[in-house]
């Protein structure tokens, strides 16, 4: 052995760190690949567990997108007082139509309203018996579609309090209900996701626990020859991380597949409601969230298990 070929005994800290981690990564991947069936089963369990909240979230996203297509239907019908004559009514209509944030305003005079009612209600002859036209003049106002929901509502609310307005009807109750339902569903998904996150933790923790038990001898020998706790812990943490990430990958594939399967019927449904494309698809942010959650849960579960079980394995 020549002196020129000697390699430094103590490598620099940075390259040492890199070397340790590369070794742990390749060793753990190698280990998982050597028993592909077991690895796949664990990944599949995690995948299904992650796919459920991710899929629900995608559906919710679809509903949300669809409902924003319905915002245009937020509108107010202002029934004017009988004391407001036709000229004043048209004047008011012009004022409202010019207001910023108003997309469209339509004036329906008392006569027009009566003609329309006669034509559509089937009570035509009955109405002829009345001496007076009982219908009020109406202004139907729709906010600008670009206006945020809260502002649009405030604007319409203000219109209902105009002195010329006798009574008003806001066509927004059912939309409010939809939003409320969506909020409940979103909260429900969060709860489900929380419970399922716990399930992922338990699945990974149990797998790592069995892994530790089966490698007890190796851990003992490593401790005897002076391996640090970090060195012994590292492969288990990476194994947890791989389980989480492979589960996340499977979850995304499952949700994507389900999205494809649902695309046709969802298209038909949204077509029926005339609300554009509301099909639930997996957004980039959801994909990131699934991978992030998988990685974090796998790693945390491994850390939890390792800190509980490695200390108990001490050479005697």
């Amino acid at each position: 052995m020549s002196g020129a070929k000697r390699v430094r005994a103590a490598p620099a800290a940075g390259s040492r760190w890199l070397l340790d981690h590369t070794r742990a990564i390749s060793a753990t991947l190698d280990q998982l690949a050597r028993r592909p069936f077991g690895t796949l089963l664990t990944a599949l369990v995690i995948g299904i567990t992650l796919a459920l909240p991710a899929g629900l979230y995608a559906v919710l996203g679809g509903l949300d997108a669809a409902s924003s297509g319905l915002k245009g239907s937020l509108r107010v019908s202002l029934f004017l007082k009988d004391t407001v004559d036709e000229a004043a009514g048209r004047q008011l209509h012009a004022t409202i139509a010019r207001k910023p944030g108003i997309g469209e305003a339509k004036y329906i005079s008392r006569d027009a309203a009566l003609a329309e009612f006669k034509a559509h209600s089937g009570f035509g002859e009955a109405l002829d018996m009345l001496s007076d036209n009982p219908l009020p003049a109406t202004i139907v106002a729709t906010p600008d579609a670009a206006l945020p929901k809260a502002q649009a509502e405030a604007l319409l609310d203000a219109l209902t309090r105009l002195p010329e307005v006798d009574s008003a009807r806001l066509d927004r109750e059912w939309l409010e209900r939809l939003y409320a339902i969506l909020a409940v569903i979103e909260r429900l998904i969060l709860l489900i996701a929380g419970a399922l996150a716990l399930a992922v933790l338990v699945v990974v923790a149990n797998t790592i626990r069995l892994d530790i038990a089966s490698r007890r001898e190796e851990i003992l020998v490593l401790k005897l020859i002076g391996a640090s706790d970090a060195f012994i812990r590292r492969p288990f943490l990476y194994t947890g991380l791989w389980y989480g990430l492979s589960g996340a990958l499977l979850a995304c594939l499952m949700v994507f597949g389900a999205g494809l399967a649902l695309a046709g019927p969802a298209q038909t449904l949204s077509g029926l409601y005339g609300i554009g494309t509301g099909a639930g698809t997996l957004g980039v942010d959801t994909v990131f969230a699934v991978f992030g959650a998988g990685a974090a849960l796998g790693w945390l579960a491994a850390l939890w298990t390792v800190s509980r079980h490695l200390g108990a394995i001490e050479p005697r």
């Binding site: 390699v7 490598p11 490593l222 020859i225 002076g226």
Partner: peptide
Amino acid sequence: AMPLIIRGHSGDD
């Protein structure tokens, strides 16, 4: 090789 791996020696070494 195990004692060398836990010490972080390079592959050649």
